[in-house]
Design a protein around this nucleic acid. Sequence first.
DNA 1: GATATATTGGCATTATATTCCAAAAATGCA
DNA 2: TGCATTTTTGGAATATAATGCCAATATATC
Lengths: 165, 165
Amino acid sequence: MPTYDLDELDWKILEQVQTDGRITNHELSERIGLSPSPCLRRLKHLEAEGVISRYVALVDPSQVGLGVSAFIRVRLDQQGDHHLDAFEKAVAEIPEVMECYLMTGDADYQLRVLVDSLASFEDFLRYNLTRMPGVSQVTTSFALRPVVYRTALPALSKKSAKSRD
Amino acid sequence: MPTYDLDELDWKILEQVQTDGRITNHELSERIGLSPSPCLRRLKHLEAEGVISRYVALVDPSQVGLGVSAFIRVRLDQQGDHHLDAFEKAVAEIPEVMECYLMTGDADYQLRVLVDSLASFEDFLRYNLTRMPGVSQVTTSFALRPVVYRTALPALSKKSAKSRD
DNA sequence: GATATATTGGCATTATATTCCAAAAATGCA
DNA sequence: TGCATTTTTGGAATATAATGCCAATATATC
């Protein structure tokens, strides 16, 4: 849940830094219509509160030979808390796992993994996934091509956006 | 396919900037064991080549009230090129769509969308998705909880990593 | 082994971030 | 509405970092 209230200016800052994480404070302050020092203070505040969790460079997977995205749905043989924990800890250790979610529906988890080839994917399945604690059923679909990949969050619709008229 | 060969130092740079996109060049150069100016030149080169596609701030969805991740599998009624194009263009316009992939298997597309509530999700389905060109079947699963979310790519295993012994 | 090419390291310059403090604005309260 | 308090702002001074340049070193080529 939202730790503290964001006003218009904070949202503008988030919008900008989500687009360009290396924007200078000066440029940022101009875009949001505020002078540099309060702008910086707001930014630091957003960082300190954890609203901005981190800054990263995004590397194009296809440029470095990582052409295969696989979506894997996993069922565990038991769903008790410590079975889930064990699986989650194990999965977090594997660098090929870009995303993993605990799911509703007939799969317990869904993973997106990134590998350079189908051969590597097979290795991943054999040596990593199927050896993980509690894994009983695994179903894979492959992405033929990425269409959208976004890290910037959508703006909140009406309601939560605190209006100040 | 890889546009140009990355050596050990380039990989180290990528590893670092994927972890901290605002690392100073000085700090970066120390971590990879090189002096600042060639380090900066390599970094700029990686940017210019598009290996580093961009720098972004990551905002924690739960901190801003975006608590619901939905995975949607979509079938189109026809799969000709311009039906796919039309769908893809439409989908790219919707800010709630964080990811979309053209898939193998029985769904044509898989989307991850991020909304603040089930009510918003219903709006998304009614007013956005089902009105999009060619959509015939839609199947949703929800994420109960994110387990892993990573933007740093896995290191390439052996093979493609050009060894220089 | 000599020449050519590419890469590196250090320095000077320019740009950027950070800190501090006084001024202004917003808020709470009578 | 008017006054006091709190919060936020803007600008100037200082510290830190990025950038461009050039000579020195290392690497590759023949």
